[in-house]
């Protein structure tokens, strides 16, 4: 007897409570509010949120997701946008969103203080997304595991060494922007045909194409792989965490990502979004990255570059063509070519 009563009473109460407590809750739309999708690490997102709230009194609702997830969500919500600003995360999805008209153009008064690459990102996207930080692609190796191999890779070419068979890890470009950056970098360094030859040769040394771009850095720190290709700042995070890992800036030169920021089209808190946009480009805001253990290079010229960050001046950077390699047609072509010609090769 008690059972069924309990059961039904609970059910009824639950239904009632669900209806009452939820239907009226949700995203904030009042004045002085901001809904932000944040594409970097949690600490950094939180630091930005609280600092901006303290500075302006605007209440920020922040959701952290990977930049691919944010893009998918912004696209799905296009008919009735929930977010106001999309801050951080690699530039490709931002460019894609700009191409598909999911974001709006805005010219910040702070634009003049930015590095050239950040402004170029803004121009290439027809003023719809701006660079907030950048990080170079590179690789690293586990200093303990490398001893037995008798090699110290310094260049992209060194990674083809047969001694490193099954010892290199990189993400799958289909799932990770990091790895797509590698694909585009190699092609821009060597030309498309030679580039694909290189990737095919590299395939023999790859032990796993991971899903997430930063995974090789972690696997390296844990000793699961000897060499990992990733963004250098992700590897630096492992070094700061005292993992036996060394970061390498490839001698031939390398590509880079531009972490970006866009205002969502149809944002319900446009004024707050613009306020945040301007604020996020100031040195004070950009300093927060290093404090949150993220060592990207900030885009404002006046922001102190964190001492741990890989010095962009000491890295040979290629002139990365974001417009070409960020366009969805070129991306689809290269990815399916990679799928057919590289990924399916026997080891």
């Amino acid at each position: 007897m008690t059972l069924k009563k309990n059961f039904f009473v609970t059910t009824m109460l639950a239904s009632a409570a669900t209806a009452v407590s939820f239907l009226s809750a949700g995203a904030a739309q009042a004045q002085g509010a901001l809904v932000m999708y944040c594409g970097v690490q949690e600490e950094w997102c939180r630091a930005m949120t609280t600092a901006f709230e303290r500075e302006t009194g605007i209440k920020v609702s922040m959701t952290r997701k990977s930049s691919g997830e944010i893009y998918a969500q912004v696209k799905a919500e296009a008919a009735n946008p929930r977010a106001d600003i999309w801050w951080g995360g690699t530039g490709d999805p931002h460019m894609q969103a700009a191409e598909e008209n999911l974001t709006v153009d805005y010219k910040s008064p702070k634009l003049a203080e930015l590095q050239d690459w950040a402004v170029r990102q803004w121009e290439q996207s027809k003023n719809k997304t701006v660079g907030i930080y950048s990080g170079a692609l590179g690789f690293g190796y586990n200093t303990e595991l490398i001893k037995s191999k008798g090699i110290e890779p310094k260049c992209w070419a060194d990674l083809l060494d047969p001694k490193l068979k099954d010892e290199v890890q990189v993400a799958d470009p289909n799932s990770s922007g990091t790895s797509y950056t590698l694909l585009a970098t190699i092609i821009q360094l060597m030309g498309e045909d030679k580039g694909f030859e290189y990737l095919k040769a590299l395939h023999k040394n790859i032990n796993q194409y991971t899903k997430s771009g930063a995974a090789p850095a972690k696997a390296m720190a844990l000793g699961e792989t000897t060499v990992g290709i990733a963004f250098m700042h992700d590897i630096v995070t492992m070094v700061v965490d005292k993992a036996p890992v060394k970061v390498v800036a490839p001698c031939e030169g390398t590509g880079y990502e531009i972490g970006s920021m866009s205002i969502i089209k149809g944002a319900k808190n446009m004024d707050s979004a613009k306020k945040f946009y301007d604020w996020a480009l100031t040195p004070d805001a950009q300093k927060l990255g290093a404090e949150a253990k993220s060592y990207q290079v900030p885009s404002n010229k006046n922001t102190p570059v964190p001492p741990q960050a890989p010095k962009l001046s000491e890295i040979k950077l290629i002139n990365f063509d974001f417009a070409k390699y960020g366009s969805s047609d070129e991306r689809k072509r290269l990815l399916s070519k990679w799928d057919n010609e590289v990924k399916n090769l026997p080891k």
Binding site: S66, G68, E69, Y71, A72, K75, D92, P93, Q96, D172, P173, N174, S175, S176, G177, S179, Y180, K211, S328, R331, K332, L335
Partner: peptide, 11 residues
């Protein structure tokens, strides 16, 4: 999952 959120973004 990666067809939706990955570099291909092909729903």
């Amino acid at each position: 999952f990666f067809a939706v959120v990955g570099a291909q973004q092909d729903q």
